[in-house]
């Protein structure tokens, strides 16, 4: 890790929204009784006239966001990933994506790293649900720097975006001036022994595995997949050709998310073995985030094990 500092991407998101709000008067932020948890209360404090709390009605929130977007506003609609991609799926598909409206769906509390709230609040299927919808851009940033960049970047994209964020604090990976591009995976390291395609909170786990393996003279590369859709096909094929082993890891079901995306490309372009790490077609459970990472075998030690013996 470049900087020895931890911050949750939901926190970075909340702060970036305030900065964006200062520059762009069309930005409207919505939430459904989760201003504190989604960190959108930071925006509320600065711009109360551009903040809408609809109470506990996520489907309604998505519809209001659609209406605002038809009038030229740039709505950022925030709630937990479960209630965005899950509860409001129809509203997102038919009311936002089909008419290609400029709504940013900001989904915090994704994955098992939600922790103590347990399975009902641990969304493990959202990448799968969202990436199959036409017009939808699907993003899942890995750290503070990338999240702040993404929040600004998506305000300039005309069309729907699903932004997957995390509750748990994770290390800051990138320097503030790091350059990213939507649709381009970020390569960390040149190792040829294995490629770890990681997304969101799993990127820092992959980097930790990379650092530990280097001590044993095993050199791997980490690919930070911040854009799940459109997926960077060229990078996937390049890594498949250049490295001995391919592993995907996500705090999400192994069905339909990052792992599936990578496999879809490789079956068509360069058939080879892929090890999919993630949640194995099951629901989550209560516990501390770091305990759950171990329980569901998606931590850096498991990655090291798969690199060596998978």
């Amino acid at each position: 890790m470049i900087l020895d500092k931890k911050i949750a991407t939901r926190e970075s998101f909340g702060k970036a929204l305030v900065e964006l709000g200062k520059r762009n008067k069309d930005v409207i932020v919505l939430t459904a009784d989760l201003a504190g948890a989604t960190k959108t209360n930071l925006f509320e404090k600065e711009f109360p006239e551009r903040f809408i709390d609809v109470g506990i009605s996520e489907q309604n929130m998505m519809g209001i966001a659609s209406g605002l977007a038809t009038c030229g506003k740039i709505p950022f609609a925030s709630t937990f990933a479960m209630f965005a991609a899950g509860r409001a799926y129809d509203q997102i598909r038919n009311g936002i994506a089909y008419p290609n409206l400029n709504v940013k769906i900001c989904a915090t509390h994704s994955g098992i790293t939600v922790g103590e709230d347990g399975a009902t609040h641990q969304m493990l299927e959202d990448l799968s649900l969202m990436r199959t919808i036409p017009n939808m851009i699907v993003l899942c940033p890995s750290d503070d720097t990338q999240t702040k960049w993404i929040v600004n970047e998506i305000a300039n994209i005309k069309g729907p975006v699903y932004l997957r964020l995390a509750r748990v604090s994770t290390p800051v990976i990138y320097e503030q001036n790091e350059i990213f591009e939507i649709g381009k995976m970020k390569q960390i390291g040149e190792g040829k022994d294995a490629t770890i395609f990681a997304t969101g909170v799993m990127v820092s786990e992959a980097i930790k595995a990379q650092e530990e393996l280097a001590k044993e003279n095993i050199n791997i590369r980490v690919i930070d997949v911040h854009t799940i859709k459109p997926i960077d096909r060229n990078m996937v094929i390049k890594c498949a050709k250049e490295t001995k082993k391919l592993i995907t890891i996500e705090d999400h079901s192994i069905i339909g998310g990052l792992g599936s995306s990578i496999c879809e490309i490789l079956t068509e372009e360069y058939p080879c073995k892929v090890i999919r790490m993630g949640i194995q077609d099951q629901f989550g459970k209560s516990g501390k985030a770091e305990q759950l990472i171990k329980y569901f075998k998606i931590g850096y030690e498991e990655i090291m094990e798969k690199v060596k013996n998978g």
């Binding site: 809408i52 489907q59 309604n60 929130m61 998505m62 519809g63 209001i64 966001a65 659609s66 209406g67 605002l68 977007a69 038809t70 009038c71 030229g72 506003k73 709505p75 129809d90 509203q91 038919n94 009311g95």
Partner: peptide, 12 residues
């Protein structure tokens, strides 16, 4: 879903 959309338009 339409009434929510109309609410968004009216707020705008």
């Amino acid at each position: 879903q339409g009434l929510s959309v109309a609410v968004g338009m009216a707020i705008s």
